[in-house]
């Protein structure tokens, strides 16, 4: 039997009229932004080249195959440099990010005014700028080479590690802190005994996670001259040696998958 509703009965709707209006407005703005953006991009595109893209792509693929296997021997040294850039850069970042995180966390920052704000500013600035841009900057300052790459990785990672670490510190349990303080420990000892053990697993996990990302990023720093396998990549692209390029891609893929596996294993072990 059908159910009838009286006139006075409230009618249930999912959203209020205001929310419906806002949703439509949101969609309208989104579509408008998209169309404008697309027109902007389209205006700057030479479409004749694009119609040619499929054949260009096919051509590219045919030149990439087969990969230049013999080239591998030349790539081992740049690959070693790439791994070192990622590893040493991560270690360097840890050295700076750890104290920074303690300065930035609400519960461990010293009482001096401005310290926390300064620490947060450093973290934000470091985090917002891609390691490739840091490399671009460093290459013009200290010259091309592996050192610029290490510093670029470190400069980017300080903010990443610092942010995750200070969040871990802020989430730590305050009860042991209270107990250690009550025994007459100094502020330094309190951080060492009450906070450090609590954040140790997070510390290990974050470090390895960032190392994994850094391996990936270190593969391209050579594009701007900051050492590693990217140097060979850009050199091969510039002379259109696509067989070499595909060989480099394969090597990068293998390295990245390996580092991802290591990172996942370590993170599973510490948590």
């Amino acid at each position: 039997m059908p159910v009838y509703f009286d006139d006075g009965q409230p009618v249930w709707r999912r959203r209020s009229p205001r929310a419906v209006l806002l949703t439509w407005l949101g969609w309208f703005v989104a579509v408008a932004v998209l169309v404008t953006s697309w027109m902007f991009v389209s205006e700057r595109t030479i479409w004749i080249f694009v119609t040619d893209a499929p054949s260009q792509g096919a051509d590219l693929v045919s030149r990439m195959l087969p990969p230049d296997w013999a080239y591998t021997a030349t790539l081992l040294r740049p690959l070693w440099d790439t791994i070192n850039i990622a590893t040493l850069g991560t270690l360097l970042a840890l050295v700076f990010a750890t104290p920074l995180a303690f300065l930035a966390a609400r519960n461990t920052t010293p009482a001096l005014p401005g310290v926390r704000a300064a620490a947060l500013l450093i973290i934000v600035a470091s985090r917002s700028i891609n390691s490739l841009i840091w490399a671009l900057l460093l290459v013009t300052i200290i010259g091309p080479g592996v050192l610029a790459g290490i510093l670029a990785i470190a400069l980017r990672s300080i903010g990443f590690i610092g942010k995750l670490l200070y969040e871990a510190i802020e989430e730590s349990d305050h009860r042991p802190v209270e107990a250690i303080v009550a025994s007459g420990a100094s502020p330094g000892q309190m951080r060492l005994y009450a906070i450090a053990p609590q954040i140790a697993p997070a510390f290990a996990g974050i470090s390895v996670y960032r190392w994994d990302i850094n391996i990936r990023e270190a593969t391209i720093l050579g594009l701007v001259g900051a050492g590693g396998i990217g140097l060979e990549l850009i050199a091969s692209v510039n002379v259109l040696a696509w067989g070499r390029v595909s060989m480099i891609f394969l090597l990068i893929l293998a390295t990245v998958l390996l580092s991802e596996w290591v990172s996942a294993r370590v993170r599973a072990a510490v948590t």
């Binding site: 902007f40 991009v41 389209s42 700057r44 595109t45 030479i46 080249f49 694009v50 893209a53 260009q56 792509g57 590219l60 692209v237």
Partner: peptide, 11 residues
């Protein structure tokens, strides 16, 4: 790769 295929530019 996309620059090689599509040419320079935002596309």
């Amino acid at each position: 790769l996309f620059v090689a295929m599509l040419g320079f530019g935002p596309l």
